[in-house]
Design a binder for these strands. Structure first.
Lengths: 329, 329
DNA sequence: ATGAAAGCGCTAACAT
DNA sequence: ATGTTAGCGCTTTCAT
């Protein structure tokens, strides 16, 4: 049987009000004796507070929710770590929901979390791909990490790196290193259109023609990198550089290139985006544009909690990317 | 303002009971007209159910909790994916709590989740390292994944791979490939003592002496692998094989070996454990003992949900490991 | 220093 | 076909 405050109150011969006060530290006016008795009973009886009841009453749960699109992509767990380390400091719990890039799951996660389970939501998917309806019904603060959204219009907070500029720079790196026929493999998520822009811009600035046949778009995963490379290479054997939308894609590219006996970076250079933990351990070590995932998570949580606790307005925070030169360029 | 059932009931000119019935699909005896009216109102007013209230009443939340020790270790997200795919099928939500290998966080996660927030808990840490007190207070079913625990005694379910046998086999692989001086680097978590046993046994069976100076124990992370290799190599330059407690450690080992200009596998062979997603992309590709993480997660969720829904008893499910021969042996 | 009581939003058994 | 009602376990205001 579940032990409730009532049980403790009964055992201690006091009212539930007294028990509640003691257990919540509101015990200035409680006798030392009663206090002790209650704490002991709590331990002895194995009392666990019922969060449903408490939440129903207090209308807050001391927890923040984190919605991520793909837990298998190390970039997101890294953000999660940042969020949690920060939340822990402020004594907030964090629950995570993985949507697996599934729109329905995303909607459900939002509904679930906003059903008063969390005091705020940190989000890493473009909100643009879920219906406006869902967004409007979110009645807790939200801060978006790493995804460009119309934050201000929606009243959201935002922590991000300029991905367009990042891909622009990635492309420039390749150009600087002598690549003349540069392909691009990325995801065709609504938000990722941006990224591609960086590639196009860089090419134009270098007076190189942008050819659609050099662009392959699917998902942010290894198989996209592999399949994209196969297809692109087949149509254009002379490609000498590949800009990747993220590191997972880059891993797939590396793998495909290896199967095609291409020498990296002699025959072809590749550059990733994110700098996931494993980028430095790949074959060969991946050159990539780094996003400070952990720090972004930390700041997102910080922003959220300050807002929750002190009413600090949610803001827009931009981080800088950096270039991690390794062995693929 | 938050929209409640009362608001809808008021707007529709019916009672909250009727609204509740309709919104929960218990509408066999509700007129089509009322039904429509309520659904429309729900949409129009942006009603979101209050999970606290519902949970308080129903004593269940349709969600299962997943506690993992290190979200940055790809092995765990893989389990998480399995859990979620299965849960999704049964219309259960899953929330995750990352403890970061922090005992306090673990205790909090348990308290938090058991505070009636979830109907069951899936656990990937040895329960042995949290106090018996916490365990006793868990009043929801739990199934442990990948961790040996006294499942039966505690009434837990269990899904696992025999890690001792796995490490035993890993060591054998090295022996079979001619290694004569085999070191072992693993974690000194309470549960990991087991793993080491497999190494010791294999050595004994091959009539090789077990030397403590060839064993390095710290944590399941890359830096342990790196530091361990440095230390071990310094004391025993002639080591020709290293058995790793997990793949993260193996990655650190590979890195250190590279810095020491050791040729792999010619000079020294290394074998990992888990077969995380990135194992095949390392330099060189890691030979390792595979645990079917995704499947284990799926089965754990299946077991949990069957138990929750149909009362199927929690059981003990053993999976087989397999050997992934790649380039480090 | 302690208690009584109202009520958070919802569900479900029991009317009608 | 719909409504009444009695809580679920907790917090909190107001009494005492």
């Amino acid at each position: 049987m579940t032990v409730t405050m009532k049980d403790i109150a009964h055992a201690a011969g006091v009212s539930t009000a007294t028990v509640s006060k003691v257990l919540n530290g509101l015990d200035e006016h409680i006798s030392e004796e009663t206090r002790q008795k209650i704490w002991n009973l709590k331990e002895k009886m194995g009392y666990i507070p019922n969060n449903f009841a408490r939440g129903l009453k207090k209308k807050s749960s001391g927890t923040i929710g984190f919605i991520l699109p793909d837990i298998a992509n190390p970039f997101f767990p890294e953000i999660a770590r940042g969020i949690q380390d920060e939340a822990r400091k402020e004594d907030f719990a964090v629950v995570m929901c993985n949507t697996g890039n599934n729109a329905e799951a995303e909607t459900k996660a939002i509904e679930f979390l906003t059903s008063k389970m969390v005091d705020g939501i940190i989000y890493t998917r473009s909100v643009m791909n879920v219906g406006a309806k869902e967004i409007k019904t979110i009645d807790v603060p939200v801060v978006a990490v790493d995804r460009r959204i119309h934050a201000k219009k929606l009243g959201f907070g935002q922590v991000y790196v300029d991905a367009v500029a990042g891909i622009h720079e990635a492309t420039n790196v390749l150009i600087r290193h002598g690549c003349r026929k540069i392909a691009c493999i990325s995801a065709k998520y609504p938000t990722s259109g941006d990224r591609i822009e960086g590639y196009r811009q860089a090419l134009k600035e270098a007076r190189m023609t942008v050819r659609e046949s050099l662009i392959y778009l699917d998902s942010f995963d290894v198989s996209t990198g592999y399949a994209g490379t196969e297809k692109l290479l087949h149509a254009n054997p002379s490609i000498d550089g590949i800009v990747c939308g993220d590191d997972l894609i880059a891993f797939g590219v590396l793998h495909a290139l290896r199967d095609h006996r291409k020498r990296i970076p002699e025959d072809i250079k590749v550059i990733g985006f994110d700098d996931i933990y494993f980028a430095k351990y790949s074959t060969p070590a991946l050159t990539t544009i780094r996003q400070p995932a952990y720090e972004m998570g930390k700041e997102a949580a910080h922003m959220m909690i300050s807002h929750l606790l002190n009413g600090t307005p949610l803001s827009s925070l931009k981080f800088d990317y950096s270039i991690e030169m390794r062995e693929t360029v």
